[in-house]
Simulated scan of single mutants.
Amino acid sequence: MDNDGYDYDYDCNDTMECICEINTGTEVTVQVYVHSCICVLGLLGNLMVIVTYAFYKRAKSMTDVYLLNVAIADVLFVISLPLIIYNETYNWTMGRWACKILRGMYSINLYSGMMLLACISSDRYIAIVQARRSYRIRSRTLIYSRIICSGIWLFAIAVSIPTIIYNETYDNIDLISNQTMSICYLKFEENETAQRMKILVPSIQVAIGFFLPLLIMGFCYSSIIYTLISAKNFQKHKAVRVVMAVVVVFIACHLPYNVTLLYHTLSLFHERECEVEKTVNKALMITETLAYFHCCLNPVLYAFVGVKFRNHFRKILSDLWCLGKKYIYRRSSRSTEVYISTRKSMDGSNNENGSSFTF
């Protein structure tokens, strides 16, 4: 989901000119349009989840609380994404603190979103695999889930502190246009700090933001699948397909980027040919877009696949349709009243026995 994170190129200079060339032209244009679509879809889907929990469905279980927090994290992510994309494409004009806040929010939502997905898998594991023992644990669901969610958000903030500290705005020369641009990027005062952080930050991102949730989800969902298959029930087998879809989509969206980022990090301080560097950076650009797309699929996979949630979704659409009809009716009624009063005044001025029009 994030990219604090997702941009680990060296600064543009004479020795690394080949890297900078891939960040301009057609690739950037396509990236902007694709990310814009992701923002729109992600915002609509996750806002639907938030609206459903706010007005139509109370969060009664741990999974409900986790889903609501995942939707909030994804909304914050898609809100910050277009601002970062725009300012990276053109010029950073929002100042130093905006740079730190946006980059930090980006990173916080990555870690919180991933860990919350792991929590959802853990809750389903307890409810299905440990069903007999889960009553005591799940009897105080809202208390436990709120404590866990608060801990996850605090942990995400703590892990994102290096991102907030070291992202700064500074001027850089664009080798293509030969113009000075203000950018928001990682900046270090000492080479030793730069080397440490350029390895530490992406390594933590890959380890905590992907592999740890993947291990938790892999264990929980494999146990769930085994339990459901043993149940020999049609509805249970239908649930197996949903679980498989969740796991496959998660891996398909995030594995390519994290493998590419891991390779890029391991070879960061080794000399590579310019064409190889271009290929790696293009791969990062493509795979990060695929990772972003997961925020659009979260509402579908975790919320709208449920029958009750789909019914709430239909209720939202029905209410929006009714509100739209009421608004149109009121506008048309006001227009009619204005038309009638105008005709009355006109007829009264031209005819002493002015008639009134009724419908």
Results as ranks from 00 to 15, higher is better:
S223L: 13
H264G: 00
L261M: 03
T260S: 03
Y263D: 01
S230I: 05
L255S: 06
N258M: 02
G218T: 12
L255C: 09
M244F: 13
M217Y: 10
T265P: 04
A245Q: 09
C220T: 08
N233S: 11
Y226I: 07
V249Y: 07
A231D: 15
S222Y: 12
I225R: 06
V247T: 12
C220D: 05
S223P: 05
T265I: 09
A231Y: 14
A252K: 14
Y263I: 13
V246F: 09
V246R: 10
V246T: 11
S222C: 03
L212N: 07
G218W: 14
V259C: 02
L262Y: 04
F211C: 04
V248E: 11
K232N: 14
A231W: 10
L266K: 00
Y263T: 10
L228C: 03
S223G: 06
L212V: 14
L214M: 14
F234A: 10
Y226N: 05
S230T: 09
I224P: 09
L261W: 00
I229K: 15
Y221N: 14
I225L: 08
C220S: 13
V240R: 12
Y226T: 10
A231I: 11
A252H: 14
S223I: 07
V242A: 04
L266P: 01
L266S: 02
P256N: 02
V243R: 05
K232A: 01
M217Q: 15
V246Q: 13
L228Q: 08
A252V: 13
N233T: 10
V243T: 13
K236W: 04
Y257L: 04
P213W: 13
A252Q: 14
Y226V: 04
H254Y: 11
G218R: 13
H237C: 03
I216C: 09
F250Y: 15
L261H: 01
L212W: 11
L255W: 13
G218D: 10
K232E: 12
L262V: 09
V247L: 07
V248F: 14
L214V: 11
I225K: 02
F234C: 04
L262M: 11
P213N: 08
H264C: 00
F234D: 12
Y257W: 13
V243P: 05
H237S: 08
S267H: 03
F210D: 05
A245Y: 14
L266A: 01
N233F: 06
S267D: 00
L266W: 00
R241F: 04
P256Y: 06
F250M: 10
V240F: 12
T260R: 00
Y221T: 11
F234E: 12
V249K: 05
M244D: 09
S267Q: 03
Y263C: 02
V246G: 01
M217H: 08
V242H: 14
F210T: 04
N258D: 07
V243Y: 10
Y263F: 09
F234P: 11
V247H: 10
M217S: 09
Y257P: 02
V246A: 01
F234H: 07
M244L: 12
V242W: 15
K236T: 06
G218S: 11
L215T: 09
A252P: 15
F219G: 01
H254M: 07
N233R: 10
V240W: 12
